[in-house]
Amino acid sequence: MSGLQVTIEGIGLWAAQATGLDDLARLLDGIDVAAPAARPPAAMLPANERRRAPESVLLAAEVAGQAVAQSGRDAAELACVFTSSHGDQGITDYLCATLASAPTEVSPTKFHNSVHNAPVGYWTIASGCHAASTALCAHRESFGAGLLEAACLVAAERRPVLLVCSDVATSGPLTEMAGCTLAFGTAMVVAPASGRPSLARLGLQLAPGHPGEVAWPAPLQAWHDGNPAADALRLLVPLARRASAAVAAAGPGLTLHMQLEYPA
């Protein structure tokens, strides 16, 4: 099957016990890292937006900001692919509970923040980005489907793309359904090959099949069990270990095979 080639110019990460890819590498080496703040700082957002933004927006903006800063790119020039398996589950819980008890009292702000593209909407407003932007989901395969879409944009449009994959923890009766017990977010700036500094070159190929089970040290296994966005660890762990291959699910019967090369 045909393949795609992109370079990874920046990576962001926010997990229960790690901030950024360097923390992940230390955890994999058995070194303790400082726990991140309870609330993602999301420094890219203007202060007034940061105060009122729902958790899904803060998490996405935090990891996006890390990745863009590392890439050295202007955020306004990056097409945006934001993926989340469940959207803002706190707002879904609020909406459904309010609709069940007092439907005419739904908050207009919570309603417009409930759209799946709220994080990318706030991000593009904060960064002044007029490029194509999208919000996707694909159950447990949101990371692979989003990476495939981002790589397609890079290859077809020859432009840099910001990929964000994040889910917040669930609250209320939906917890039993969604199984999100913790927050996890990651972001990558992916771009066509160029002379710019990069973290890795990534070759992608699609093939039928399943990527198989993962076996990672604590706490990574708990992240993966507790948040669908943590399926991104299927690429992040090999990147942190400077491994040469990775596999992730791009759909229920479709696997994304990845080859990794690192600059000297």
Binding site: H116, A135, C137
Partner: peptide
């Protein structure tokens, strides 16, 4: 069984 996603914008 090809590439499959939902766009929600």
């Amino acid at each position: 069984q090809g590439p499959c996603l939902t766009v929600s914008t």
